[in-house]
């Protein structure tokens, strides 16, 4: 049910935009192509920013730095009641979307679909957006280099997400 709804969203949305335009006597084809021209420009403009961010994050993941962080944070884990296997996911989900999905798939395969650890990990993955990707793409597109409060706020939101995910999962799954 949910699946067929989400399949229909995009076609319906496209049809709605075009029908609404035609109803208001907009030359829809010309308007569309005129707007679409901008698409190329914007996509190309964000390349340098995305290369910078993705290279740095890929290096960080490949170096094993995340395992080291996990080791350093072990005492904190006990206080907040987080299974050690979830830490790499908690760190990676702010950095790399595909990386976080990979780690989650690994956790799910190790623990099985019915284990509370898998479910907690699913909540952690599902409740997050890749903060550093969003920042570099959106700021890159408009040429902003001084991000001011956006980085700190993004990190605080991510940390909140991790803590709440643990707490809510305790209530729902354990």
């Amino acid at each position: 049910m949910i699946e067929s709804c989400s399949l229909a969203i995009i076609p319906l949305l496209v049809a709605f935009f075009v029908a609404y335009g035609a109803w208001h006597k907009v030359p829809v084809y010309e308007a569309f192509t005129e707007g679409a021209k901008e698409g190329f420009d914007i996509s190309i403009r964000i390349i340098p920013y995305l290369v910078a961010m993705m290279v740095a994050v890929a290096m960080f993941r490949a170096s094993g730095a995340i395992d080291l962080l996990a080791l350093a944070f072990e005492p904190v884990l006990e206080i907040i009641g987080m299974p050690a296997d979830l830490l790499p996911l908690a760190i990676t989900r702010s950095l790399s979307g595909s990386g976080a999905r990979g780690i989650f798939a690994q956790i799910a395969a190790t623990y099985g679909d019915n284990d509370p650890v898998t479910k907690t990990a699913a909540v952690m993955l599902g409740s997050s957006e890749t903060t550093f990707y969003v920042l570099s793409v959106y700021f890159g597109a408009v040429g902003v280099k001084k991000f001011r409060h956006a980085v700190a706020a993004g990190i605080v939101a991510d940390l909140t997400g991790i803590l709440v995910a643990l707490f809510v999962s305790k209530l729902f799954f354990y």
Binding site: V14, F17, V18, Y20, G21, W23, H24, V26, V28, A31, F32, T33, E34, G35, A36, K37, E38, G39, F40, I42, S43
Partner: peptide, 14 residues
């Protein structure tokens, strides 16, 4: 990007 920005232009003009 081209697809959605094209649709956005329609939405803007309408």
């Amino acid at each position: 990007m081209a697809l959605w920005l094209g649709l956005m232009r329609i939405a803007q003009q309408s």
